[in-house]
Nucleic acid binder design. Structure first.
Lengths: 217, 217
DNA sequence: CAATGTATTAAACATCTGTTTGAAATGACT
DNA sequence: AGTCATTTCAAACAGATGTTTAATACATTG
């Protein structure tokens, strides 16, 4: 049930347990007693090491972002020498795995998407550190696929179309698991789903690029 | 701040206020005192009319679903005589408006999507009443666009691709509002966004249908 | 009008929650 | 061993929260 070894110092144990519990139950529903008992630590420790529950939350959130970025670097999709179709496929595969990874690191993305769905004061930091870079990279790729004459609003909407297809599996996971569990059952299913989203998006983007060309002439 | 008239009986006022507050803050963070003070009602009323806070929640959820379905019927997209492209556009436009409606009825979809993102015991009822019919209708439309030989997994994935593009604007609204607020600023922007999602999806679906034909021969 | 069932209310209850406190334990260094 | 800063701990505190109670007001009916 608890994957954080007791050999770690109390400070780190608290942070990692906090990521788990906050991810599972959200900020409000999580009690410091929950966290402390799971970390095998006295209740007062939270206020001793971190000033308050809220401060622990924002520290845990920052750590989650840092560790997730570390575990899933997006370097391969950044390679501008690759064809844009390949880059998009790489981006989506990486993003989807990041979202659906159910191993210990899975808590990280769960905590982050929870913060997005129910923003606390800490959201702005999340957006700046975790979201904007992903948006920028994806925008770069999408622009390449759409061709030059694409207007700003179209690019933005296409961007959200791609991201939305991926995030569906995180935010509506409870539904997907009940209605179509086979789509995310195991590693190969996830890879297949990622391939689908890439294909779906590339087909749409290239067609939209053509529509723009036709409209222009 | 409070849109429920005092002339309504206490029972109904409690239900409608509950929809609002639960939608805003979630089940756990909502207190019965919040609800009662907004409804101008004594604290004991919740336990008098509904056995408990939890029971009030599930009753409010059921009412939200019922009223949302009533307000946004999907009859037009059900017309099998219309071309599938038109039906898909109608479905998406309806769905997106349902999600983004910020009027009084907006609380309904907020409550429902919150239940999806953070399921309580009441989720199964939601899925049966509110989700499955939408899925079935959309599946019907998608199958028409994909042509007959589409296999089950492909249909399911395409379905989620369409829904994901719409739900993006609900679940990640906090991000969209900060990075691309103009896309959902007003009625015409929403209509334009709906048109984009329909176009994006139709282009992808028809291309995927062609890919399947080519692969078959 | 009296009686009876229903609705409303203020107060109390028991439990939970974040935080504080002051003492005890631990460890480092002279 | 003795001093000192740091860490850990049990206990308590103050406020909030879901629920109950018992008394009061209201309305309907015979």
């Amino acid at each position: 049930m608890n994957s954080i070894p007791l050999t770690e110092p109390v400070f780190d144990r608290l942070l990692h347990v906090a990521i788990e519990v906050f991810a599972e139950r959200g900020f409000r529903a999580t009690t410091v007693r929950d966290i402390c008992s799971r970390a095998n630590v006295n209740v007062a420790s939270v206020n001793y090491y971190f000033r308050s529950k809220e401060s622990l939350y924002s520290k845990a959130l920052a750590l989650a972002i840092q560790e997730a970025n570390q575990r899933y670097p997006i370097t391969s999709a950044q390679d501008k020498n690759l064809p844009p179709e390949k880059r998009l496929a790489l981006f989506i595969d990486n993003f989807l795995h990041k979202l659906l990874d159910d191993s210990h690191l899975g808590f990280h993305s769960k905590l982050i998407t929870r913060e997005i769905a129910e923003p606390t004061k800490a959201l702005d930091e999340i957006i700046a550190i975790a979201i904007v870079p992903q948006f920028d990279l994806l925008e770069d790729i999408v622009r390449q696929l759409l061709g030059n004459p694409a207007d700003k609003a179209t690019v933005e909407r296409c961007l959200l179309s791609v991201l939305g297809q991926c995030l569906m599996f995180k935010h509506s996971r409870s539904i997907v698991e009940r209605l179509h569990p086979d789509l995310i059952a195991d590693e190969t299913a996830i890879k297949e789903t990622a391939k689908h989203i890439a294909n779906f998006s590339i087909q749409a983007l290239t067609q939209i690029a053509q529509q723009a060309l036709v409209a222009q002439s």
